[in-house]
Every structure is written in structure tokens, then in C-alpha cells.
Amino acid sequence: MDENKVILKISNLSKTFEDKKGNVVRAVDNVSFDVYDNEFLVLLGPGQCGKTVMLNVIAGLLEPDDGEVRLDGEAVNGHSPKIGMVLQKTALMPWKTVIENTEIGPKWKGVSKKERREKAESYIKLVGLSGFEKSYPAQLSGGMKQRVGIARAYTNDPEILIMDEPFGALDAQTRYAMEEEVARIWQQEKRTVIFVTNNIEEACYLGDRIILFSERPATIKEIYVNDLPRPRDMISEEFMKLRTKISDNTDLAI
């Protein structure tokens, strides 16, 4: 892993939006950070701090008011096919089966049915959903839906994968299982992952680096480098130390 190769460069990003009452709210304020190739980067911040807005800007769904996003040295303008995303509300298409949902990326690019099916199949296997290809999303549990969301993102072959609080809606047990799963998949299928969460334990378990954000408007508080060996032990002394260090530096709302 080349730690020094910057793949995504975010500089001086700012974004305001209008809330329902028409007040102008500053969501992201002058944020700059680099994302290295193949790293697992965690963005940690309290709920409602503007992380999702920031992600939508990075993914090209929203335009920044100020600042820019550079991918491989080129300014990102609109959504780049090199960036994939796993959404908190999985947003699987309810009228498509698991395999049809998984293959939408290559399908829309015009990849032949045989080829895209094979690819989708391999990622469905990777996330452990073999046998559910023909099921509709409504037949799956929350954790399974999120697995499909992950398979769908990987099948589209992005260079960078953004995960926006993917496990926010899951119960604690499923959440632990999914964290392990994501760490395993990331080690098997090396990609740059930007993982957003408001859970410190999750951040420490998954991240190579953890960027801690303040309350809204989101600004960077601190960047932690986490080189604990994987698979990580959540009750080891070093893990606890890191966890305490971060939580002591955190705004209350977390």
C-alpha cells in the first residue's frame, strides 16, 4: 500500500443550504483533507453535523459553494463514475431482485448480460448472499439489504467507495457482524473506502485514519492515525486507549 499517493484531494470545501423554514444553514465550513490510495478512511462526527452534505458534494450530487474536489489531480465536476456510494437508506429498487439490483452499474454502462451477471454473482457471493439472487428487497432483513447495497457499489468497480453511515439503522448485533464483514471485504478487494459514522467504536475498528469533525458547521478537529493490526480486538488495551482519546476530544452530541 502506497501511503503517500493522494487519490482524492478536498480543499477549502464550504457548503450552505436552506432549511425548511428558509434559514440559511452552514453545513460544511472550509474543510480540506487528502484521501490516500487504498486506505480505509473514517470520517467521524456527531449526527446532523453536515457529513452527509459533505459526502454528497464529494460524490458530485451537490455542488460546493466554495472549494473543490480533485480526483487523481482532476477537478471533479458532477458525479464521477470512479466514485461509488453505499447509502444509509440502502435505496435498493423494490421492483428489482437482488441480482438485478446488484448489476445496475454495469447494466447501465451497456455491459453484456452474461458478463455483468457473472460479476454481480461474484460480489453477491463475497457479501455472503448466495442463494438470495432472486429475492426482492422486501424479503430481506436490514443487514442483508445493506449487503446488497455494498455488492451493488463494488460491482460498479469504483476507485473510491463512500459509505454513508451504512449501519446506522441496524441493531447492535447485526452492526458488529457487518463491521467485521466490511473489514474482511476491504482486505479482500482493496479499494479506497471513505466510511462515515457517528460511532467511535466503529471508527476505531475500521479506520486506517480517522478524521474527527466538530458540530455543525463541520470543521476538522483532529486526524488520528490508527495502525492497530487487523482483525482488531475491540477490548484490547490499545483499542480502548484510542477510543478514550477520541471520545475525550468529542463534542457532546456524539
Binding site: H79, G84, M85, L87, K89, A91, M93, G105, N156
Partner: peptide, 10 residues
């Protein structure tokens, strides 16, 4: 959100 997905997968 479905339109977002459409956009994310180009």
C-alpha cells in the same frame, strides 16, 4: 433517493 441512486450509477 432513487434518483440519487440513478445518478450514482451513471
Amino acid at each position: 433517493i432513487y434518483l440519487d441512486v440513478g445518478q450514482l450509477f451513471d
